[in-house]
Every structure is written in C-alpha cells, then in structure tokens.
Design a protein around this nucleic acid. Structure first.
Lengths: 114, 114
DNA sequence: TTATTTATTCTATTTTGTATAAAAAATAGT
DNA sequence: ACTATTTTTTATACAAAATAGAATAAATAA
C-alpha cells in the first residue's frame, strides 16, 4: 500500500450531500438550513463556511457570486456546486462506509451493556 | 436547538466498525489489519491507538489486558470492545449518513464536469 | 439616514487524524 | 544466561477538520 489522501471528514461529507439536495440553490445559509432540517442538530454558520472554504481549496466544489437580485435586502449570495472530483470523492466515501458496514448484523449493535 | 455533542469522526467510525467485525478478537494489530483489508489503504498503527485511546476516554469502548499466553512472543494484547454508548453512537452516525443520502439520485453524482 | 435583513468573512480554539519513534514483554537460538 | 527476533503497546508531535462567535458587508424598508 502507501497512500496519503485523507478521508472526507464527516462534516464535509454532510455538507456535500446537503449541496446536492439543494441543487442550484446551494449557498451558506441554505446549506445550513438543509442540514439542520435533516439532522436533529444545530450547526453554526461559521462551521459551514470554513468547511466550504476547505472543500473549495481541495477542488471538490466551486463557487460563483450571484448577480444581485436579492428580494428582501442582504448581501449577494455565493453559490456553490460540486466538481466532478467532489462527486467522485462522495462516491468513494460512500463505498468505504458501506464496505465497513457490510456484514454487521443488527444483533451486534444490540445490548451487551458495557 | 442547541447541542454540543459532536459527530463521530470518519476514522473513529471506521475503527468502531472494524472492532465489531472482529468481535472478541479486537486489539490494535487486528483492528489495523481489518481496516486495511477492507479498504484499499494503509493505516499507521499509531493512528489506530490514538483513536482507540480517545474512543475509550469518551466511553464508546472499554479495554482489558489479555492474560498472557502469546504463542510466539510479544507483549500482552489489549482487547477492546464497544460499550452500549458506542453502539448507540454508531447507529446514530449511520442514521445521520443515511438521512443525508436519502433521495440522492445516481444522476446527481454523474458528470457535469465542474 | 437609520434600522433591519440577509449573507459572508475573519479569527481563534478544540477535536480528530496521522505518522514515527520508543518501549515493553514474551519466545527462540546458541 | 544472553542476545536477537517477534508481537504489541505507548509516547510524542504535528497537520487537518470541526466549530463557534464576532465582525463586516450590502441591500431594502421606514
């Protein structure tokens, strides 16, 4: 073996999936809402943006500023979308997790307190 | 909302699952091998142990030293097993990931280069 | 012109991931 | 008995990811 490329972190994984659900409408605020809506948990907006920043630096997503037109006020949105590298990484991550879960019987997750 | 408990990291997740596969035979070296066998990737033994150490501190696993009887030489093994908290956390993590993947059409992962 | 809304950026800290080197404890050989 | 070898754990250090909170920014509403 020999390999350095790290896994996609858990949160990066989640952010990427939220973006996929949002399609053309993925930007900081909606990504945050999408995640909070699906998972019983609050996420700080700062967590979202630093993660987005990192994902972009790694080439898994790209961004482009929205051309004005805010309906109610507010700064211009920055839209994000997955690159093919990001999609590939997502599939790879999914495979790793599936492989690890393969053959785990529900019984193994039940009881035996301690 | 309001909540602090963090996700299980990707690697912690993997280590816990490897332990489940190994059942009574989970200790540093076998966990490493189990992971490397399932995933096309090498993992340092130090990575395994620090992760194990943290998981124990968090109450997701417990350990006990094996009572001698090494067949060929070598220091006594330290066996690890999941606590019910660890199992619960694993289920929770699985649910989060499943929830996020729900409704992602394969098409969304295909093409559109960029 | 000020308040409000929507949104992003900056900064700092804690947690996780990861590798390498060192130590420990047992057996095998001579 | 002593030394080499094997198997395994511990210690140490550093990089990357997660996370929060405050600061900014830019637009509309009053």
């Amino acid at each position: 073996m020999a390999n350095r490329e790290t896994y996609l972190g858990e949160f990066e994984h989640i952010v990427l999936l939220a973006m996929l659900h949002l399609k053309e409408n993925a930007y900081g605020m909606t990504i945050r809402m999408e995640i909070e809506a699906r998972i019983e948990r609050s996420v700080s907006i700062g967590a979202i943006y630093t993660t987005l920043e990192r994902l972009e630096k790694k080439g898994f997503i790209t961004s482009n500023m929205g051309e004005a037109t805010p309906e109610r006020g507010g700064k211009a949105k920055r839209y994000f979308s997955l690159t093919s590298a990001g999609k590939a990484k997502l599939k790879e991550t999914r495979n790793i997790i599936d492989t690890m879960w393969q053959g785990i019987h529900p019984d193994l997750l039940r009881g035996t307190y301690a």
